[in-house]
Design a protein around this nucleic acid. Sequence first.
DNA 1: GAATTAATTAACAACTTGATAATTGTTAAT
DNA 2: ATTAACAATTATCAAGTTGTTAATTAATTC
Lengths: 251, 251
Amino acid sequence: MTKKYRTPDGYTADIAVFTIVTEESKPFTPPDMSLNLLLIERAKWNAEGELNTEGGKWALPGGFVGVHENALQAAVRELKEETGIDCVHMKHFGIYDEPGRDNRGWIISNAHYAIISEDDLREMNANDDASAVKLVNIHDVLQLELAFDHRQIICDALSVIKKELLQTTAAKNLLQDEFTYSELQAVLSTVTKDPAILNEQAFARKIKSLPFIEKVEGKTTQRTSKKATQLYRFNEVEVVKPIYTGRYQER
Amino acid sequence: MTKKYRTPDGYTADIAVFTIVTEESKPFTPPDMSLNLLLIERAKWNAEGELNTEGGKWALPGGFVGVHENALQAAVRELKEETGIDCVHMKHFGIYDEPGRDNRGWIISNAHYAIISEDDLREMNANDDASAVKLVNIHDVLQLELAFDHRQIICDALSVIKKELLQTTAAKNLLQDEFTYSELQAVLSTVTKDPAILNEQAFARKIKSLPFIEKVEGKTTQRTSKKATQLYRFNEVEVVKPIYTGRYQER
DNA sequence: GAATTAATTAACAACTTGATAATTGTTAAT
DNA sequence: ATTAACAATTATCAAGTTGTTAATTAATTC
């Protein structure tokens, strides 16, 4: 190809990995969850013993996209390489292409978020050097010293994940296939103050009429209560809730 | 910079421009609107008289991003250059980076959507060669022969714009600053079948309690009715509607 | 002046939901 | 065996939402 324009010096994929951490799991008790973001600490020195670009700061996992793959594939690959996590739900959410954002050149970053369950997370801890990887509660993450423009990327990721969890059925990726109303409620509680969701009786009542959730007939668990509790699962129905309907008045 | 990787051959910005077309505007009548997408016809031959890549097909406006700008700026610039439109509401919505999507090389397309009002559209028609530019009703657009992977991009754009109009206050960009309930309803009707929005009495009642819309005190118009009609405007309030609340049962 | 039309208001029924309370099933302590 | 504890579940009420139907209002047209 004849290049009429100056072309980019690189194309990277970054990944904001979100996961749920169950804070305390006493038997027969509904879970108390927090939403966490996975970060890696950039090495202070590179292989040649020189100071590394943005070394010592915390950053999102990621790396360069190859010519043979798209950014989504690269993101999945990099996450596996850097943390051992096999991700199911990974999605593009933004592009970071401000001139000068990376002092190494004209580098375009394609940002993704991934949602993984606690279960899948355990593989990670076994697989990798834990010292350079940590989970940070989403309420604390902006206090850290972050590399490049990752503060901005993380801000955007937080706002995207909050919307995604409330406006789509993405919560299914943070739960087991079959779950109780209180487990789903615990996930949603990490990102909303909506009283219709926080109110236990109201939510237990509501879950039965949601078109995208179905009762697992005759199946119960004692994970969250001494009394056997009904299990539910997501089905394939997708819905869009307009802001022009519903209630807005507090009582 | 030392290049360890092969780098992209180009970075382009494409723009899906959406606008409302009022189908018939009898006086004293609520509008009948359709949502349209702006497409350009690619020239059959290039400057050297050779057959152009994907020439003769319909495509989204767009072009290469320069090293001194980000893709959003490039998108605004290209849209102005190609159609004369000065756009207010332009946003990134997707990346198209499949290897082989453009036979000219490794070219990454950053896709944007723009929402412009009928008023702003008039400038365009005055400004440019109308033969190569046309507005297509969103229900017809997928019938056309489209260049590159623009069919996919347009599909995604349609689904994004539908969500955006219902789940955010983006409709304000398709209306005048002050509007009647029936004008807002006409905009929303182009993208939803929700009875709570299509029902006139219900919607006229509802608009008064929406936290992100306020009455323009004492101001009316006769655009849509012989009887003077109340005007409303959007304020700055932003809301997120969870799918876990509200009604799902049809009557 | 009557007909027409869109906006507005009213009224009702069915549904939603926050609040409060009662009931149920199981475990653990007495 | 009895009781306390506790989450799940069900019940009830009040207030808000919304589809439906109908009446009222204001301006224009004939």
